[in-house]
C-alpha cells in the first residue's frame, strides 16, 4: 500500500492551538514538508513570534527560539551569523511584522541577511481579539473599527512585499495565498525557493502568505477562504515582486 499523503516528520504530535479552520496550520505543514524535502532535518533553527503562532516552538520538530514582539528578523540575523551553516527561518504575523516589527524587517531586508522570513497576513490582530492591523482592508470591520476601516481616520493598508521589493538587499520577495489546493501548491514552491536561496547564500527571502482568521472575521472557515480569494487578493495581489535569479 502506497502512502500518497501523510503528516510531515518535521511536525510534532502536539495538537495545534489554533482555532478550527485557521490557515496557520496549513502554512506550518508547508514549512515542515519543505524542510523535510530539502533534507534540512536537524539543521534548522526557527524563530517563533508573538501572536497566535507564539507556540510554534511546540509544533515544529526542530530547534526554535521564541522572541520579543516583532524582533524575529533581528534575532534571526544573530542566529544566522553565529551559525552560518544552519537554515534559519522567522515566522511572523501581520501585527508582528508590519506594525511593531517593521523597523527590524526593513533593516534585515536592506542588509540582505541570509534568512527566510514567512509573513502570515490575515489582515487582523487575531490573538488579542480582532483589532485593526496595519494590513486591515479599507472597509473591513474589526473591534477597533466597528464601522469599517476609514481611510481618513485609520489610514491605508500597508503592502509590505511591494515596500521590501524596492530595496536592493532582498533576493526573493513573493506573495502567495493558501485559499485553495492550487494556491497551496504554489505557496509551497515559493517557500521552497526561499529556503533554496538561503542554502545557496543568495540572501534575504520574504514570503507573504495571505491567510484567514475565521474567528475574528466572524465567518466560517470556508467563507473566510473565499474572502481571501475574492477580497484580499484585490488589495494584496499575488505574485513575485523581486527575484534576483531572474534579474528583477
Amino acid at each position: 500500500m502506497e502512502i500518497l499523503y501523510k503528516k510531515s516528520r518535521m511536525l510534532t504530535d502536539t495538537p495545534l492551538s489554533y482555532c478550527p479552520g485557521c490557515t496557520h496550520g496549513i502554512v506550518h505543514k508547508l514549512l515542515a514538508e519543505t524542510l523535510e524535502e530539502i533534507g534540512a532535518e536537524g539543521n534548522v533553527i526557527g524563530i517563533a513570534p508573538v501572536g497566535c503562532s507564539v507556540f510554534a516552538y511546540k509544533f515544529f520538530n526542530c530547534d526554535m527560539q521564541q522572541v520579543a514582539h516583532g524582533r524575529a528578523p533581528a534575532c534571526a540575523t544573530g542566529i544566522k551569523r553565529c551559525n552560518p551553516d544552519k537554515i534559519v527561518f522567522a515566522y511572523q504575523g501581520d501585527g508582528d511584522i508590519a506594525s511593531i516589527g517593521i523597523a527590524e524587517i526593513i533593516h534585515a531586508a536592506a542588509r540582505g541577511e541570509n534568512i527566510t522570513v514567512i509573513f502570515i497576513n490575515n489582515a487582523i490582530y487575531g490573538m488579542t481579539g480582532g483589532q485593526m492591523a496595519p494590513t486591515t482592508l479599507v472597509g473591513q470591520k474589526t473591534t477597533t473599527t466597528p464601522y469599517g476601516r476609514v481611510v481618513g481616520i485609520n489610514g491605508n493598508p500597508i503592502r509590505l512585499c511591494e515596500m521590501i521589493a524596492t530595496l536592493d538587499g532582498p533576493c526573493f520577495v513573493s506573495r502567495v495565498s493558501v485559499s485553495d489546493p492550487v494556491n497551496v501548491r504554489k505557496a509551497k514552491k515559493a517557500i521552497k525557493k526561499g529556503f533554496e536561496n538561503q542554502i545557496n547564500k543568495k540572501g534575504f527571502s520574504l514570503i507573504e502568505v495571505l491567510s484567514t482568521c475565521p474567528t475574528n472575521w466572524h465567518m466560517n472557515p470556508v467563507q473566510s477562504l473565499d474572502y481571501v480569494k475574492n477580497e484580499m487578493t484585490k488589495i494584496f495581489p499575488l505574485g513575485v515582486f523581486k527575484d534576483c535569479q531572474e534579474g528583477n
Partner: peptide, 18 residues
Amino acid sequence: GCCSCAIMCPDSAISVLK
C-alpha cells in the same frame, strides 16, 4: 487520491493511502 483534503487540512488530521 487527489489529496486535496489532506493538503488543505490545517491540523494534519488526514492521511491518504493508495
